[in-house]
Amino acid sequence: MSERTYNFAYLDEQTKRMIRRALLKAVAIPGYQVPFASREMPMPYGWGTGGVQVTAAVLGPDDMLKVIDQGADDTTNAVSIRKFFAKTAGVRTTTHTEEATVIQTRHRVPEQKLTEAQILVYQVPIPEPLRFLEPRETETRRMHALAEYGVMHVKLYEDIAHHGHISTAYAYPVCVADRYVMDPSPTPKFDNPKMDNCAALQLFGAGREKRIYAIPPYTKVVSLDFEDHPFERYRHDAACALCGATDSYLDEVIIDDRGGRMFVCSDSDYCERRRESAPPAPQPAGTDASHA
């Protein structure tokens, strides 16, 4: 057997060209879902097959790759995908947001502001924001084509009618460049404002559903809302128990079976950086942080 078993970044060059053509179209029509011939990948659907294919298509030998899963660099999914590209492409990898040139993410946008030199690749389970309101694909395509988005607001209306506020907390629908309504993948709505006018190129890949879409740099991204119930970010009313951050998105961690819990930054790199640079001010574990 030859020494290199795989082509660079696993996929063959024809496949990468096919994906790049879809990516170019997606960038040209911000928010529009471009069908592509998604391949079988050596991982189950739902683990980021779409994101991995997009990453493989944009990755070059000089790139520095970072992979996060729910904000963390050290969870199974993130570690596996990072190792996958380290092995099949030989690219350098990092956990530091500012060092990375390509960041593949599942369900979070890093806290650190992204730059023009970076590409953010999202893993998307269900790309169609209208899917739960309209099951027919032929019909949702027509609705996108004609910009018939009234039903999106029906969903938000139902939220307010039942809960008194817009209770959609993740996969919160956005309108991209005043045209297409888009599902931002299951990121918390806390991250929606970061997608607006973002310097980095944002690419979305859905492997099972065979769709690619994109937000080019500095594109207007508006979260849908009502005049009297405007869009609001949500984060737990607490500071990070490890780094004390009051501006980051927090995960709630259950620490015992008596109701004890702590809040920590979901973005593990952001949290570590803050602890390295500043003298720590840890909260005692087991108590709720009391300030926002």
Partner: peptide
């Protein structure tokens, strides 16, 4: 309300 929202009503 659906038809109203479809023609652009945005005030809950």
């Amino acid at each position: 309300g659906e038809r109203l929202m479809a023609v652009g009503w945005r005030h809950y």
